[in-house]
């Protein structure tokens, strides 16, 4: 038997403890929880491993994160959306979440192993990465932004990730197994407990993690981008103005520069040279544009299964980031 019998899940103290720790209701069966812990590398039988559940869970996680980001920050550049998706529900983040939940891995999968342990075939040190993990489908010569949005995963990778079903009996790293467990758990929660509870689970375990979007930007030519933005939106051309300064002739001068469009201040930055302060102020102004947050947001999933659609308010759709 490659994986423990479902009957043994009822006797497992680890599984009961995990269910209680995650505050899951009693009607969520322990047998399903045990199944989410079995990676296809441990048990190739799709009826006993978590491959199908993790496909469903990955789609749900991607959907809820994407709608949260796109509705709350409609002007975010696509690169930042990809990076934020990766930070919220990327493989690394999911592996960290699994370890925070106290998931431990079995040294070797098998039928006699305690069902509360994560089971997968380990990648031995020195072995190369197996071909299934390196598979690149769909594969193109020119990887465009559109290709990254529509053809691959939600993190904007140039290639699609390997399908969980293709990893049967293939040795995998720990991170891959841990992320498949978290995804499978979300998928099984959706099947057993329904969407509202999954949304609450997602909010308390994934969205509650602190992520400062304002630190994910990397501007190379903010002054040029900002003047392009002002021309596009019909504002007056931005002008850098010196708000205050100290120690101009000293070793550590500080200049505070504001970027003004007409009489409105768009951004403010401080630096040890006039150029640096101007650069930072332009970057701050661009961030202020991109991080705009509408006041009343209704995400599309909030109206799922509801007959009353009067609460729905259409979300803002921005015309896109600045292209120079």
């Amino acid at each position: 038997m490659p994986s423990p019998h479902p009957y043994e899940a009822l006797q497992s103290t680890k599984l009961s403890a995990l269910r209680a720790r995650l505050s899951l209701p009693q009607r969520f069966p322990l047998q399903t929880l045990a199944r989410t812990l079995i990676h296809p590398s441990a048990d190739p039988d799709p009826a006993f491993n978590n491959a199908s559940l993790s496909v469903l869970g990955a789609n749900l996680l991607g959907y809820y994160t994407a709608e949260h980001l796109l509705c709350n920050y409609p002007r975010l550049p696509m690169e930042v959306v990809f990076a934020a998706q990766n930070a919220y529900v990327g493989p690394r983040a999911l592996a960290i979440i699994a370890s925070e939940w106290g998931i431990e891995a079995a040294a070797e999968p098998g039928g006699e192993v305690e069902p509360g342990l994560l089971q997968f075939k380990r990648l031995r040190p020195g072995e190369g990465i197996p071909a299934a993990l390196k598979k690149q489908v769909p594969w193109k010569w020119n990887v465009t932004q559109t290709h990254r949005i529509v053809a691959t995963d939600e993190f904007g990778s140039p290639n699609a990730p390997p399908s969980p079903h293709s990893l049967a009996s293939v040795p995998v790293p720990m991170e891959e197994a841990a992320q498949s467990f978290v995804r499978a758990l979300v998928g099984s929660l959706h099947l057993h407990l329904g969407a509202p509870l999954v949304k609450r689970f997602f909010k308390s375990h994934f969205l509650s993690r602190h992520l400062d979007l304002s630190e994910m930007f990397d501007f190379r030519t903010p002054t040029r981008d900002l003047s392009r933005l002002c021309a596009r939106e019909g504002f007056e051309a931005p002008v850098a103005r010196l708000i205050s300064e100290t120690g101009r002739l000293s070793r550590h001068p500080v200049f505070v520069v504001g970027i003004y469009s007409g009489k409105d201040k768009l951004g403010e930055g401080a630096g040890s040279s006039l150029e640096e302060a101007r650069f930072r102020a332009a970057a701050a102004a661009l961030k202020a544009w991109y991080l705009y947050k509408p006041l009343d947001v209704t995400v599309p999933s909030s109206t799922e299964g509801e007959l009353d659609t009067t609460k729905w308010k259409p979300n803002m759709v921005d015309c896109g980031e600045v292209i120079v």
């Binding site: 504002f235 409105d264 768009l266 403010e268 930055g269 961030k287 202020a288 991080l291």
Partner: peptide, 11 residues
């Protein structure tokens, strides 16, 4: 420094 999440009136 002003917060980056504050949107100026013009934006």
């Amino acid at each position: 420094a002003p917060s980056a999440y504050h949107t100026p009136l013009k934006f």
